[in-house]
Write a protein that binds this DNA or RNA. Sequence first.
DNA 1: CGCCTGGAAACATTA
DNA 2: CGTAATGTTTCCAGG
Length: 930
Amino acid sequence: MQDTSCLSGSKFTFGRVFPTALGKEPGLQFLTSLAAEMKSAEEEAFPGYTPNVSLSLPLVRGNPCLASQYHTLQSSPVISMSSCHQTGFGLRDDNSHHNPAQGYYLPHGLRPNGAPALESPRIEITAYHHQYPEEEVEESASLDQAIHQKRGVNSIVTLTLPNADGYRDPSCLSPASSASSRSCNSDASSFESGFYNYDNSPQNSPWQSPCVSPKGSSSLLSCPHAPLAPPSASPRHSPSTSPQIGAQAEEGWAGHGPRGSSRPNSPACSGGGSNGCGSGVGKRKYSFNGAPYRQPSYTPNQSPTPSPRGSPRVSVTDESWLANTNQYTNSAIVAAINALTTDGVVDMGEGIPIKARKTNLDHSPTMSLKTEPGGEEMGPGSELLQEDYISRLPFKKEVYGGDFLDVPQNPYPWSKPKPYLSSLPALDWQLPSCSGPYSLQIEVQPKSHHRAHYETEGSRGAVKAPSGGHPVVQLYGYVESEPLTLQLFIGTADDRLLRPHAFYQVHRITGKTVSTASHEALQSNTKVLEIPLLPENNMRAIIDCAGILKLRNSDIELRKGETDIGRKNTRVRMVFRVHINQPNGRTISLQAASNPIECSQRSAQELPLVEKQSLDSYPATGGKKILLSGHNFLPDSKVVFVEKAQDGHHLWETEAKVDKDSVKSTALIVEIPPYRNQRISSPVQVNFYVCNGKRKRSQCQRFTYLSPNVPVIKTEPTDDYESLGCPDLSVQSNPYYYGQPRLAPIIPMGEDDSSLVGGYPPCPPCHGSASSAPASSTPSSSPTLHDMSPVAYPRCLSTSPVHTRAGHLASTIHEAPASLGQPSSPDRGIHHLGPHGYNQVYSNGSPSSSPDGSDSSSPGGGAESPFTLVPPTQNQGRCSPQSLLPENASPPPLAVTVKQEPQELDQMYLDDVNEIIRNDLSSISVHLSA
DNA sequence: CGCCTGGAAACATTA
DNA sequence: CGTAATGTTTCCAGG
């Protein structure tokens, strides 16, 4: 089933893009095919095409929807990506550049039409971007905001949606789910889903056709649906959320003051997963029960969260630095806006509800955005800004628009909108951690466990480092005297592409014990903590101001567009971003994600966690002992080695011998079991996990069996591997990647590869601290991903991944758009699903330079947008700079790396979740198909 | 008094 | 359908 669903999902999503690939082949083939296709596609699409960049952007836009979709897809996508990478790499050397890009692009590709997207995309994209940014709110209010957003409080209409949507939806299934959800939910989500759905469902059609077209992104807008959606959405929203208070109330859904009343059922529902929608809906309703639910906390006005408005800004400091940042960004922003406006506007207009538009219009002027004093206006002000963006952005607009409209009232001051945000890449985009001389690294990783607090609880403090201190992030290679802003948000830690976590939000911690100034902002429903990176501090920041807030599963799942399931989805990563303006007007955006952080009290106490392993590879003969370091190991813990085929099928599974005498809660010695085939000619990658019981498994860790004769590094072999069923193999020296192939792929590509990075392969795990987890690389950067687990989405991988990627891709594209031109990128995008997807688009500005600029992007384009993308090469971002270096050295291996991908291993764990998701997807897909 | 926490009861779902 | 195993969310209490 899952498979099916997945597949279907994928199809939907990007089906167009490479439907065949996805749809057709499930497992390995899937990858393989993808790769092939990718190549072909690329070729086709862009035969000559260069890479790039530009395209990507477009895609993105086009797909805002896509994004959503992909989100959903994501999981699977990953895999694809990998394949892509491989392909890319292998295949194209020529393209190599492209490849990378491709990877990134893939997503675009995802968009099926990618191409189309390209065109329009620009606009759309822009909007897209903007949207997010727009949202930002500042301050503490953020919480509220966040909440609102999530809940839709704000808005009006769809409050919810927006949030959800935000990235999430997209990711999620939205499409698929959306469909279902819609049905279920009804409108509410609709608007969001609107886009998503539209995309999705329609997508099939729509996308491809209409939407896809250029504006795809705008699709929302552009798409008739979109517009419609909004309306409907609004309604929904309204219903659900009503505006502010009302909304809250609604949101409050749950109402219940004390839990007593009833908790919302949510979670469980989610569990239901598939039903999800239906149930979800139901749930919510139930939850609504009238009770006001907790509003208290969030209610808008009140400031729900602790952070009161006041605090937010609190420190002058914050503002000041903010100001700085803004300043410089402003120009860029403005430019972007203008650009955006153009395209976006138009579309937007259509898509957007009247109200929204109005606002937009009004605001538009906004450019000033930044400014906005805000005042209470916050609502307004922020909205304004947003609106602008919104207008541009299809969905958001809608969403926000609606929200905004309603919102106006928001009492919160959120604040000031930071204009510049708007132009920034969406939070679900995958960005590299290194670009050119710059490298964003997590010098000190956060602890693997951090109990998140509920809104009903007081803060549980800032995330800490294993040493007792706090995480530390540093930007290397920046020699300017101008301070920068480090953004922090809570991202997912599953095997899908990194994206904002729907069930967790960063929580700003203030107080005498906090030495780092921070400021909250909202970006597409995701709270973003902005921390100053000062030259005087060597561009290093101690993150002692960030806690993690847990949102109730039921609340989130009820959202219209939300497709993710909260149950057992308790791992997160801290995601850091920095945007560096370049003299040429472009902006380089870097991202680094931390190792996974388990946020559930119970899971943290019971689930085994492998942070380090003394050996990552060994000859197939096995027999050697490995020391595993981590937590929650028990005398009866078991270590299971598994090998899965690309399609997720188990090829081999065996329990390794554990030295029970040496077992400690934090260490365990296991003997490497002999591989099933002692005559492998190339490295075979397998996974292993620690199991304390049926439902208590650690995430999968990677391990590579080497050919007795061959050295590890080999390259490629993909095929072989594939045949074996092994996902990756090799190369990886990095142990951890697993996660997502994406990483690997990385590639240099980039647009230019230029970037340096490109050259490098993905960075391995560099994380600074890395020590701990293996960090896999996650897409984002981080290494860590590991398997966290759970999340499983495994099976779907194939499918899902797609989605995801798409999403990412999209994102990538966005940036690109700006710079790159649309064109090419798009194409590529399409092709490349690339796992990498990430890479981004941005990359180079070159693009911008080039062509795109003009064209394409108009919207946000390059010019406008400030950023350029970076090339990410490594998309993964993660690379740690340092690591990178090394790796670079080893680059070759890289290639290899790419292959890998996916590991679906984890999936097993995830299964629960995955299944659910799948089910949802399947249903969705079904709908779609229908 | 308020922030942090660790623990755990009360609920909810899933097996 | 009842029960056990799991998970989530809300409370409590101590530092």
